[in-house]
């Protein structure tokens, strides 16, 4: 090198060092379960366990809906059976409401942990990188978890209004899920929204169904590769299954069947 070292002409000033300030305080008191949930490792556990519960719901929801392809009677009986389970062991809808409450609690906890971890993570990097980040391992799914989650949430609200309460479905009739669903998904906008939400859910699950193993400490060199395959297969099967409904209904492979809602004007296959 052609350069010659010259000692600095002015003494180098050492800037003052301000050690890191805590971004939050973890109060080490209260019942252990609360202390556990206060920590973000604990919140990730809760997110994973509730995520797993929601995955269980999604699977049974899909299996139930596939009865649409058996016949109108089959799926309507299935809807009825949900209310009636477990037969004469409990008063009608008691078990259904128990399961719904569990699902609701899981959903709220999943959301709360997601929200509060997001807030913590914002504080953990108050100043963003000023140059462009180049991600090596993080994929599209893992970086959009919050967005795909929110899309699913918004869709879910509509979905309940559309098919459970009927407030967003002019042709809705209690006790006829077949025609309610078919009518709903015959509306192109609804079919499209349904597809978008399910694609978002698939991305969410592509990362989530893998990530939950890490969060719950399920890690063993012999099964680690399977975790990825599991999540991909899970997300893929749910996507294909759920997307089949709007597609086949839009193509009129599955169509409205008489008798259906009065005073509908839609064509009715006998």
């Amino acid at each position: 090198m052609a350069t010659t070292a010259t000692p600095p002409t002015k003494p180098v000033k050492t800037p003052p060092v301000t050690p890191a300030r805590p971004i939050r305080k973890l109060v080490p008191n209260g019942p252990p379960i609360l202390r556990f949930y206060r920590s973000s490792v604990g919140k990730k556990w809760v997110m994973a366990v509730t995520g797993l519960m929601l995955m269980g719901f999604v699977v049974f929801h899909l299996i139930g809906n596939l009865k649409l392809y058996l016949s109108k009677e089959e799926i309507n009986l299935y809807g009825e059976a949900l209310r009636d389970m477990p037969g004469h062991l409990l008063p009608r809808t008691v078990l259904l409401w128990t399961l719904r409450s569990g699902l609701f609690v899981a959903f709220v906890l999943h959301l709360h942990s997601a929200y509060s971890l997001t807030m913590i993570n914002r504080k953990a990097r108050p100043q963003q990188y000023q140059s462009r980040r180049d991600y090596v391992a993080a994929d599209f799914a893992s970086r959009t978890m919050r967005w795909t989650g929110i899309i699913v949430l918004l869709y879910l609200v509509f979905h309940l209004m559309d098919l459970t309460w009927g407030t967003a479905n002019s042709e809705w009739v209690r006790g006829d899920p077949y025609n309610n669903l078919v009518y709903s998904l015959q509306r192109p906008v609804v079919a499209l929204a349904y597809a978008v939400a399910n694609i978002a859910l698939a991305f969410h699950l592509y990362h989530g169904a893998w990530s939950m193993f890490q969060s719950m400490g399920i890690n063993n060199p012999r099964i680690n590769k399977l975790r990825r395959s599991f999540a991909t297969a899970f997300a893929g099967l749910i996507l294909v299954g759920n997307l089949s409904f709007p597609i086949l209904i839009q193509l009129h492979v599955v169509d409205l069947q008489c008798p259906h809602t009065e005073p509908t004007t839609a064509p009715c296959k006998a």
Partner: peptide, 14 residues
């Protein structure tokens, strides 16, 4: 956790 954020399993660290 007093100083740092929370893991979402991106694997960027590794």
């Amino acid at each position: 956790e007093t100083y740092f954020g929370s893991c979402t399993n991106h694997r960027e660290c590794e």
